[in-house]
Design a binder for these strands. Sequence first.
DNA 1: ATTACTACTAAACGAGTAC
DNA 2: TGTACTCGTTTAGTAGTAA
Lengths: 229, 229
Amino acid sequence: MAEKTMWRHMFTLLKLAELGAHRRTAKISTEYLAAKMQTSQQTASRYLIELERKRWITRNITPEGCLIKVTEEGAKELNKLYSKLKLIVEASYPLSITLEGVVFTGLGEGAYYTSNEHYRKQFIEKLGFDPYPGTLNLKLTTDYDIKTRSELEAYPAVEVEGFQMQERSFGPVRCYPAIVQNTVKGAIVTALRSHYDNSVLEVISPVPLRKHLKLKDGHKVKVEVLTLP
Amino acid sequence: MAEKTMWRHMFTLLKLAELGAHRRTAKISTEYLAAKMQTSQQTASRYLIELERKRWITRNITPEGCLIKVTEEGAKELNKLYSKLKLIVEASYPLSITLEGVVFTGLGEGAYYTSNEHYRKQFIEKLGFDPYPGTLNLKLTTDYDIKTRSELEAYPAVEVEGFQMQERSFGPVRCYPAIVQNTVKGAIVTALRSHYDNSVLEVISPVPLRKHLKLKDGHKVKVEVLTLP
DNA sequence: ATTACTACTAAACGAGTAC
DNA sequence: TGTACTCGTTTAGTAGTAA
């Protein structure tokens, strides 16, 4: 999903696969491919050269046309696209939801909870990272964000179990993996405390988010919440 | 699968769906989309305008961004791509195989068989067309084509049953829907007669292929054989 | 903040053609 | 036949900016 040419290449690969070059060698001339792709012979030729460079196909050029086979790597690309589409088409909830909120300073209890060994152990195991002590608090301001956040509650989450410690009881926590400001890995946690209503988002991350993203109170932050494992 | 811009649009639609605009309304600014697509804000804006024109999405432009939802029509496009990929990725044999052969004149028995009511009835029912009397005979000349044709035998075919008529017995026929010269609908039929070996391809079609495609003996013809229903 | 226009630059395309 | 090069043309992409 990297370069810009990716989609032309993906399209070409798909066409070649349709024409029988997936899992077997097919004889496909540049002109034939061009007709199937509704482009010129020259362009089809260029595409094949590019795909060969990318190692998505192997070619054996003969006087009657190219013997083309999609490589393992090429097949992997088709599979990746297929999986992505499968999730989108078959899932009943979106793959990701982006929320935006304004940074504010909380009561400082986040550090206590994220440092708690019972929670921490589960975060590491279930989210794949050791949370930096503390949570980043975001206030959702628009109706859209508040509405969207409440939609989120219905989607499956990573469940972190509660526990009893001495005479205090710690409730269960629902987490969603998330990407903060399109760059930093983290998660949003809900019901960690009951102090805040659902116009507040609490974000944890392996790195200190405020320092790392140079955030101050009042800054706007985008969080892309991922709903599927 | 028509225009050239199709793939840019498909890519954009897929991204929007990933960002949550599938089956729900998502707030996605042109700048955010641009970052996700690794392009400029202006280009993302253009894409959205184009998608809206195509009615693949609906937009509600607000000062904080666009409220975007993929339309029914857009969802249908995603589904189409998904189905196509599903066939390619999950099927154990290719979707189509293209063979090339040289026109030659047979013994003229094809007309007798294709006109036979027992066969004809089944062709109409199972292939969806009433065959023009006669078959187009193609001689496969290259090793590639002969080898590919024999691969074909292993793939599921449309089975036309044999029958007894008076004292003669007519054998079963295996058919594969096909597209002749990239334009004309038809089918290849095997075992209609045992006179020819597997370096010969017999093609039937609702139209008179020789006349329709202005074919003479010795002309090369490409037949795209479809392996799936 | 946004979106999207205009004017320009960069890239892709395809006709002609060599091999 | 084939493929793929050069090169002029067309189209896509972006910077600047208005609304």
